[in-house]
Simulated scan of single mutants.
Amino acid sequence: MTVLLNGKTHTQTTRDAFSGGPGEVQIHSLGRSFDGVVAERSKVLILFVPRDLSFEIAATLGSAEFSTIATGMGRLFSDYLVDVAHRLPMLAQADLPSLAGATRAMILACVSPSTDHADAAKGPIANVLRERARRLVHARLLDPKLSSELVRKELGVSRTRLYNLFEPLGGVMHYIQHRRLLSAYAALTDPSDRRLIFQIAEERGFSDGAEFGRAFKRTFGYSPSEVRNSGGGGMPLRSHLADCPSVERLGLLLRLLQG
């Protein structure tokens, strides 16, 4: 199973020919002859799936061999593989069985969509969607238009699904505010950023300075002026307030895979 990160590919078999672009999932059988061309400077991520992984997987991939899956679920699977590839060096041996189970579920949901397969893959699917949302919030953190509705539309999910995805984090807007407060903390402890506190707050969507001060102190235990005056010295950022590190996010994903 191949995910093209950038560039183009072309495959020619005895019966058919097909091409692929970035983010699309392609299935090639290594037990059959084919000619493949990858454009210069293209980057490709490949998952080799043993035929003895499971009979269901082998039959499903066999029925879809030499094809491109350019569907919404295919894009989710593409994001899943990219994320797993990034986290793989940090995995412990004990994590591998859960990861294999999650990957089996994602393959079936991608290649042979059904209610049962989607239910089996709901854990990793939810984590892929949350990671997409995290990247979106990070990229548009200071955008005044950033809202739960914008996130919902970008993810292409219902309001109920979005609520369920972010319920463990206190909701979408709570997460966005949390990230903005962390950004404000970083600005206040940056010696080169000498803007007024209300300017830093306003840039992050707080039009009321008193509201910003209350939210900031509730989160960090210090007022914005205390943090600014100390330059962050002696006021360490509580570990549970920062974004979950990559390795911990993967650990959480693995714990939820079978749920």
Results as ranks from 00 to 15, higher is better:
Asp143Met: 06
Leu142Ser: 03
His178Tyr: 03
Gly156Trp: 10
Leu182Lys: 06
Ala184Arg: 02
Ser158Ala: 09
Leu142Trp: 02
Leu169Cys: 05
Ala139Pro: 08
Gly170Met: 09
Leu182Gln: 09
Gly171Asp: 05
Leu146Trp: 01
His174Cys: 13
Tyr175Phe: 13
Arg159Gln: 15
His178Ala: 05
Ala139Gly: 08
Pro168Phe: 00
Arg132Glu: 11
His138Asp: 15
Glu167Ala: 09
Arg130Gln: 12
Ala186Arg: 14
Arg159Lys: 13
Tyr175Ala: 11
Glu167Gln: 12
Leu155His: 04
Gly156Cys: 11
Ala184Leu: 07
Glu131Pro: 02
Ser158Gln: 06
Leu162Ala: 10
Leu155Thr: 09
Tyr175Thr: 13
Ala139Tyr: 08
Leu182Ala: 04
Phe166Gln: 00
Ala139Trp: 08
Val128Ala: 00
His178Gly: 07
Asn164Lys: 09
Phe166Cys: 02
Thr160Ala: 07
His174Asn: 10
Val151Arg: 03
Val137Ala: 07
Val172Gly: 03
Glu154Arg: 14
Lys153Cys: 02
Lys145Pro: 01
His174Val: 12
Pro144Phe: 14
Arg180Tyr: 03
Tyr185Met: 03
Val157Pro: 00
Asn164Cys: 04
Glu131Leu: 10
Leu155Asn: 02
Arg152Leu: 11
Ala139Asn: 10
Pro168Gln: 00
Tyr175Pro: 01
Glu131Thr: 14
Arg135Ile: 07
Asp143Leu: 04
Arg180Met: 05
His178Ile: 10
Val151Lys: 03
Asn127Asp: 11
Met173Gln: 15
Leu182Val: 10
Leu146Gly: 00
Arg179Ile: 10
Ala133Thr: 12
Lys145Asp: 05
Ser183Asp: 12
Leu142Gly: 03
Arg159Trp: 07
Arg132Ile: 10
Gly156Ile: 14
Phe166Gly: 00
Arg132His: 07
Val151Gln: 00
Tyr175Met: 11
